[in-house]
């Protein structure tokens, strides 16, 4: 079952076309990573899901309703953390968490206490004196202490220190274990890699790739270092092979996943002396999608 189902969603702000036909599905019980460069449209998509921005066109089903029309009913079943939390400076963090909980229709008090402890947040401080990370924690504690089926997290850990980042990852893991669904937008790739079952990459208002991380890996190139007994003539001209460099009989190049068989077939008769194949790092994977070189053949977009 899909918790979020977006088809051909567009959104324009005047002449700016922020979303140009997004297709995105998030399945029940999965943690779905939502990544892409600055200004790609992640926050806009999430705000439309929250029903605080109005779509220009397209179809959206959120849980079992329409995010704009059924906002209040749906919001009882979801929780949201923005990436840039602003609070009422004259209220304390604890007051704000309780307020948000009341607006949700109640929060789990023992869970709140536990979360405050884990995130090391002093709830008695006036929120005007909180640091950036502490403001973020207020929204995180409020969201995680609310009972919800779906968590929309838009760069939820921006400003958190590595220790708190770890606490956050634990929290998401617990939610997932409880069978809840999460849509997580983030620029921290290690976080995405650690938490997400599936990932969608958005670029300039369009989803350019969607799938599990290993599926995405498959779409990109591995780096091969090989030493052969005899010269490998024509290896560099093979379809799917890039960035060939050669030192004597040592070759180093990158290769598309689907060209790997062809390359191996060519190398095999040449007597392989040593061979290493490195899978693409997540960074490389994303660089390729974020950068301008998308869809181009040849040349890594490093």
């Amino acid at each position: 079952m899909n918790v979020i189902d977006i088809q051909k969603l567009t959104k324009s702000f005047g002449s700016t076309r922020a979303l140009r036909g997004i297709n995105l599905t998030v399945r029940q019980g999965e943690v779905h990573g939502f990544i892409g460069p600055n200004g790609a449209g992640k926050s806009t998509t999430i705000r439309i899901l929250l029903g605080i921005l109005r779509k220009t066109s397209g179809q959206i089903t959120l849980l079992d309703g329409d995010p704009w029309k059924d906002a209040v009913r749906l919001h009882r079943r979801l929780a949201y953390v923005p990436g840039d939390v602003t609070l009422w400076p004259d209220l304390s963090g604890g007051e704000i968490i309780d307020l948000l909980g009341r607006l949700h229709g109640g929060l789990d008090v023992s869970r709140k206490k536990q979360l405050l402890e884990r995130f090391q947040l002093d709830p008695a401080k006036k929120s005007g004196t909180y640091s950036k990370g502490n403001r973020q924690k207020v929204a995180l504690v409020a969201a995680f202490s609310c009972e919800a089926e779906l968590y929309l997290l838009d760069e939820p850990t921006s400003g958190l220190d590595p220790l708190m980042e770890a606490v956050f990852q634990e929290c998401v893991a617990e939610i997932k274990k409880a069978g809840k669904t999460v849509l997580l937008s983030s620029h921290i790739l290690s976080e995405v890699e650690a938490l997400c079952d599936r990932v969608s990459i958005i670029r300039q208002g369009q989803i350019v790739e969607s799938g599990t991380i290993s599926q995405l890996r498959h779409l990109t190139r591995s780096t091969v270092n090989v030493e052969t007994g005899t010269a490998a003539i024509g290896l560099g001209k093979l379809y799917g092979v890039y960035d060939m460099s050669r030192k004597g009989l040592k070759y180093s190049f990158s290769v598309d996943s689907d060209a790997m068989t062809k390359v191996m077939e060519m190398l095999l008769p040449l007597e392989i002396k040593s061979l290493t194949v490195e899978p693409p790092s997540l960074e490389e994977l994303f660089m390729r999608h974020y950068g301008d070189g998308i869809g181009e053949k040849g040349g890594t977009a490093k």
Binding site: R47, L50, G51, I52, A71, V72, R73, H75, R76, L78, A79, Y80, P82, D84, V85, T86, L87, W88, L100, L103, H104, G105, A139, L152
Partner: peptide, 10 residues
């Protein structure tokens, strides 16, 4: 941006 936080609740 405080309204955004509020409006995400019910």
């Amino acid at each position: 941006g405080r309204s955004e936080l509020i409006r995400a609740y019910a």
